Simulated assay, not measured.
Amino acid sequence: MEDGPGMFGMISAASRTSLPVSEEARARARVRFRVLGPLHAIAWAVAAYASVPAYFDTFRVMAMNPVTLWSTPDVEAGFFVSIGGFFGGVMLASILGFSAMWAAMKAYGTFRLGNQASMSFSMAGIAVGLTAALVGGLWTAPAEVGVEAATEHSAAVPWGTWAWVMYYLPVGLAALFALLALWFTVRFFHGNRRSGEAEATQARIRATGWHVIGQITQVHFTNRWLMGLPQFEIEVAYHGSMGPSRISCMVVTEPTEAPQKGGQVDVWFDPADPSQVVVEAGPAASPNPTDGYLFMPRD
């Protein structure tokens, strides 16, 4: 018997769960993501820019200055003006971000790539907003660098660790989110390259491999919903180049098209390397589609 990990419509890559999306739908999703990605990055940039006078600068001033200098006209004015921009930016960025992530998941075929593509725009937008706040002078300078300034009631006190951390916060925050943006971007391009290689292998096996009909022998609902779609683990029996074979596959479908035991799937494999398998579940995988949601556990 040949046993190996598999994936719905994919080359045996158990960590890669793909959405059941047609090529036409993926092309439309790419167009939407190219619009939504930059828009939600701009919204995050606005929120990050406004977050400096709304929140971060207030706590920074409190860490570096004596209590008598915590509240200044500039600090108070900046807080009340920017807090609306912060909350408005966060709300808009969240709405656009969800739409962008959903479009990216459809565009690139997997949840992981969609999330990485969306997060790269989010982190880049925040980094740009924090950098603009730094360059634009939104951060309040301390009364004295290295010490809490003397007042009529107290002498000057050297800064502790926390005050120094907050002093370098403007540069540190911008650098942190810039590095996160770079990390998500690199991860996305690396994953997208591997995805392209897997799709090329899949196309080669479909074109040159052997095609047989497999039968679903086991269906297990994983109790996971991926963006509103249920995920199943199925076992498929088929006749391979060396006799009866089985392969385990992760399947994501519409709830009313859940795979059922006894259903049929298309199986392609490379006769020279039987471990290279492509499994595709079509309508025949769910012979009784009216039984939708029967996979849900009953109380």
Rank of each mutant, 00 (worst) to 15 (best):
M91P: 01
L39N: 02
M101A: 12
A132H: 00
S94R: 09
G88Q: 00
D57H: 05
S99M: 10
L69S: 09
A155Q: 14
A133I: 15
S154E: 15
E152T: 00
T151H: 10
A127T: 04
S120K: 00
L113A: 03
F87V: 03
S118E: 04
T110V: 13
E152R: 15
P142W: 09
G137L: 11
G97V: 15
L130I: 13
W102F: 06
T72A: 06
T140V: 11
V147P: 02
A41W: 01
E148T: 08
V35K: 06
G78I: 13
R30K: 07
W102Q: 11
M91D: 04
F80V: 00
A14G: 06
F80D: 08
T58K: 01
T58E: 09
F111S: 07
R16F: 07
I42W: 07
F111N: 13
W44A: 01
S71C: 09
V81I: 03
F98N: 07
G114S: 13
Y49R: 05
A149Q: 09
P66S: 01
A141K: 12
Y55C: 07
E152Y: 02
A27T: 12
R60F: 02
R16Q: 08
G146W: 15
G109R: 15
I42H: 05
G136L: 03
F111M: 02
G84D: 09
A47N: 06
G109T: 08
